[in-house]
Computed example of a mutant assay.
Amino acid sequence: MNKFKVIQPSGLLAPYVKQYWFLRMEDVVRSSQRLVPLGCVALSFHRGNFAYSSQEKGCLPRSHLYGITAGYTDLVFSGCIDFISIVFQPAGTCRFFLISPGELKDRQTSLDVLDDPELLELEQRLNETADDLACVGLIEKFLFSRMCRFGKQDDKRIHAVIDAIRQGNTDVDSLAQTACLSYKQFKRVFSEKIGANPKDFLQIVRFQKLHHLMQLHTSMTLAELAYECGYYDKSHLIKELKDFSGFTPAQLFNACEPVYSGYHGLFRSAFIDLPPE
C-alpha cells in the first residue's frame, strides 16, 4: 500500500503550522530522493525503516527536528517507509519549542537530545496510532498545550517581515525598517527567530519560486524565469539552482513532476525523485 496525504492544520494553528504530511510505502526496494531547501523547520517522526542521509553520512535519527539548510540532502529509503512530518511556518517553531531555529540550522536534531519528555511521549503515542486523523489530534493537542504554557511568544516584527517578503519585498534594509530594527540588530534577530540570515532566507524563497514555476512546466525561457524570480541574469539563476538542488536547469526540468494543485505543491517543493543508480 502506497499512500501520501496532506492534512491542513486547524485555524488557530495555521499561523504557525503549514501542513502535516503522511507518507506510507511498503516493500520499497530502493528509493532515492533529494531534499532541497524549503525555508522552514520540520518535525519528522519516522515509524518505518531507517533512512540514509548524505548530510548525516549515516542513518537519519528516528525522529528529529530538521532545521533550515541552504544545501540539498540525498535520502535513500528501502523496505517500509512510514513517516509523519509537521512543517512549520518560517517563524512558527518559537511558539512550541525552547530551542531556537538558529540552533537547528543545517542540522537534523534527534528528539533524544532535546531533554523534552513530552515530545518523546508524543513520539511514542504516534508510533502506537495508525489512523492519520487521530495522529493529527494528538499533534494538535500537544501544540495547543505548548501555546498555552509558553504564553505569548509571537514576535510581531518578524511576522511583519515575513508578510513583506511574501508580498515581494527582498531589500534587507527595507525589511530592517519594517522590523523597526537597525541593520545589525535585524540580522541577529531574524537569524535567531527564522534559523537563517536574511540573505540566505531570501535566496531560498527565490529558489522555491523558481522551482514552483519549473514544476508548472512553464514555457518560459531561462531569461524570463530569471527576470520573474529576481535573478540578475541566466548565469546567476544557473549558479544558485546548482547550489540549492545540485541540478542544471535541464536536469531539474526533467526531474520535476507537474503540480496541478496546491495539495502536493509544498511536498514537491521539498522532494525531488532521483533516477535509479
Rank of each mutant, 00 (worst) to 15 (best):
A255G: 03
V205F: 10
C229K: 10
L111N: 02
S100F: 03
Q124Y: 04
D155I: 04
L23P: 08
A70Y: 09
E224H: 04
A223K: 09
F271E: 12
I238M: 01
I81R: 12
V113N: 01
F142C: 06
D27I: 03
V17F: 13
V17D: 13
Y52I: 03
Q153L: 10
S44D: 12
D163K: 14
C59Y: 14
A226V: 01
F190Q: 06
Y263P: 13
L138N: 12
M214Y: 05
E123T: 00
F271T: 05
T178G: 01
Q55M: 14
T178K: 05
V28N: 08
L75S: 05
D116E: 11
E123Q: 07
L98F: 11
Y231T: 00
I84D: 10
G39A: 07
H46D: 02
Y16N: 09
L104T: 01
A70L: 08
K184W: 14
L252Q: 07
I139K: 15
L175E: 05
L104R: 00
P117I: 06
N169R: 13
L202W: 03
G58C: 07
M214S: 04
F96L: 03
P258E: 12
V189I: 06
K57M: 11
Q215P: 08
H46W: 03
G102A: 04
R157C: 08
H212S: 13
E257P: 08
Y231Q: 01
F244Q: 09
D273C: 06
R166F: 03
R24V: 13
P249C: 00
A51S: 06
A134G: 11
H236T: 00
Q33F: 12
T93G: 05
L75G: 06
L143I: 01
K156I: 10
I204G: 12
S269K: 15
S44F: 11
E240P: 02
A14Q: 15
D163P: 03
V29W: 10
E257F: 07
W21F: 13
R188Y: 13
H217C: 06
S191G: 09
K193P: 02
G195L: 02
D273V: 03
D82S: 11
A255F: 02
E118T: 11
I158P: 09
L98C: 12
I99C: 02
L23E: 14
K156V: 10
P101R: 01
L13R: 14
S245H: 09
L216C: 10
V17P: 15
T248L: 07
F4K: 15
R34K: 13
K3A: 13
A51N: 02
L114G: 00
G137D: 15
Q108S: 06
Y183L: 12
L120N: 01
D115Q: 11
F190L: 02
L114W: 00
K193I: 00
Q177N: 09
Y52A: 06
Y232T: 01
F150E: 09
K209P: 03
L222M: 04
I99E: 06
D173F: 10
Y232C: 00
Y52V: 05
S269E: 15
Y260K: 14
V136W: 09
F77L: 05
Y263I: 12
A250V: 02
F142Q: 06
T218Q: 05
F247L: 07
S53Y: 04
E257I: 05
V36Y: 14
L210F: 01
F267Y: 15
E118L: 12
F201V: 00
Y231V: 00
H211E: 08
